[in-house]
Amino acid sequence: MEIIYAIWLRNMLRFVRSRSRIIGSVMMPLFLLLFLGFGLNNVVQMPGIAGSYLVFLIPGMVAMSVMFTAVGSGVQILWDKQFGFLKETLVAPVSRLEIMLGQTSGGATTAFLQGICILVPALLIGLNVPNLPGFFVALVFMVLIGVGFTAFGIALASRMNDMTGFQLIMNFVIFPIFGLSGALFPISSLPAWIAPLTLIDPLTYGVEGMRYGLTGVSQIDPFICIAVSGGFCIATVVIGAYLFRKIQ
């Protein structure tokens, strides 16, 4: 536990120190929320879904913020490798599993806090959370997205040698995961041939789960959401730990 805590602590220290990075990564989803939300609010009619597009968009933007931060935190180990710091951790008498779990908890916490940074302003611009338990449901989904995608990032980073492949991964893996997740639009409005893709996208269940918690409406049963999100977490942690074991 103390090793996991040490690595978590390092992540937290880096997080609080990087004010410009925090602001930078909060502004993107926040701007999207404001521009798309207010800009399309009166244009978009969502079939079968009551409420404004702005409110619909909020869970998606929080999920986006959590996911991108989480993947970035997982891939942090690649930067640590490049800047040599990873060696310091790898040569210590600690197991790879402890290092991996430490980075996962640190990354997930960072991602969660970034999500909060979107959620709080969102409450100010018109989000009416139906009830307090719903709010906590949303927080649980933020944690699940954070853990799952940090571990996913670690798994990716364990298979990469340097940062050159990262841009490619961003464009061909991370962005489609975000785009297909229903963060921006109701998944039911997609053409039938894309629908299966959204249903194999793990983020879909995170977004829908959060949407259930924050707005009381979702297109996927919240229990299915929590089962799939939880399963995704377990799977990525196991795969991430397995791949990280072999990192040099």
Partner: peptide, 25 residues
């Protein structure tokens, strides 16, 4: 002490030391 630097530049000297101490329990 490795040939290439292995410090976390975003942390202070003390925090780098503390991290190491914790890793070695």
């Amino acid at each position: 002490v490795f040939q290439d630097q292995s410090l976390d530049e975003e942390l202070t000297a003390l925090e780098n030391m503390d991290f190491h101490g914790r890793l070695y329990r």
